[in-house]
Write a protein that binds this DNA or RNA. Structure first.
Lengths: 138, 138
DNA sequence: GGTCGTAATAGTAATCGTTCCTATTTAAAG
DNA sequence: CTTTAAATAGGAACGATTACTATTACGACC
């Protein structure tokens, strides 16, 4: 998702255009991988040393709810990355070294739901961890 | 896994037979679902009100490393349950109401690894969330 | 451009789960 | 029974996240 597309969603939902949000979005677009709130804070500190964690978490959560970001939980931390594939359902391989992700378009639920009769499926999580080709050969 | 099987593994690895461990194991066998450290503590308090979280986490971690327990991360918390299927690789449906789990013997990695050329897969996580048949009709 | 109402924020405190530390206790081997 | 190392209690410390409140800033309207 591009910066313009993200702002379009935000403005459509009556959110204001602030410098903090601009910096957060630019950072996430540039990174193109899962980042922590702390990483966002460290990057923001250059422009706004007094930024509050409240601001960071509130905005990241908002972006996530609006589908601008994807969110996961890794090593006991919330992690965020730009929405890829324009919101089309997918999963990720996540490199445990550099954090880079690779899309996995295939979803295991397609072939699995039939095996849960009587159950009401609400969601699922599928992630593959390991080393990406770059990090395999250091 | 039964209590006897768990103790067999522990004794083989030179761990001592303590009352704390007995209570933790009995609790987990009785529950047959993912539980938090806090739930373990609350149950232990009846027998041993002064039990320390250090003791609980240390033992749960030990059990997990020895394959006596399975561990996952749910809602930002570590959760533990008895090893099922005698350690044969599997996944879980987890009921978001009662916490009960249902085994999913099929693993999506069987059909997927081929699509990650050059990548070194180290692990994966696959969980399905929703309501079990009992919780669908309250 | 100025004013106004509300969203957004900074700064800080509080919470929660987990881990660390150290003196004491206990299992179990001799 | 003694001995010794493992196990534990109790509490402090930690890191991530959330909550609170006074202040600031966006942007709609005039």
């Amino acid at each position: 998702m591009t910066l313009d597309e993200a702002w379009e969603v935000l403005i459509q939902n009556q959110f204001k255009r602030t410098r903090n949000r601009e910096i957060i979005l630019e950072f996430l677009i540039a990174k193109d991988r899962y980042v922590t709130a702390m990483e966002v804070r460290n990057h923001m500190a250059a422009d706004n040393p007094g930024v509050s964690f409240d601001t960071i978490y509130r905005n990241l959560s908002t972006f996530s709810e609006l589908g601008i970001l994807e969110e996961t939980e890794l090593n006991g931390e919330r992690q965020f990355r730009m929405q890829c594939d324009h919101g089309v359902h997918h999963h990720h391989f996540i490199c445990t070294d550099c954090g880079k992700t690779k899309n996995i378009p295939h979803c295991p639920m397609e072939t699995l739901a039939v095996n849960l009769p009587g159950y009401e499926v609400e969601g699922h999580k599928f992630e593959v961890y390991g080393k990406c080709p770059v990090c395999v050969h250091p």
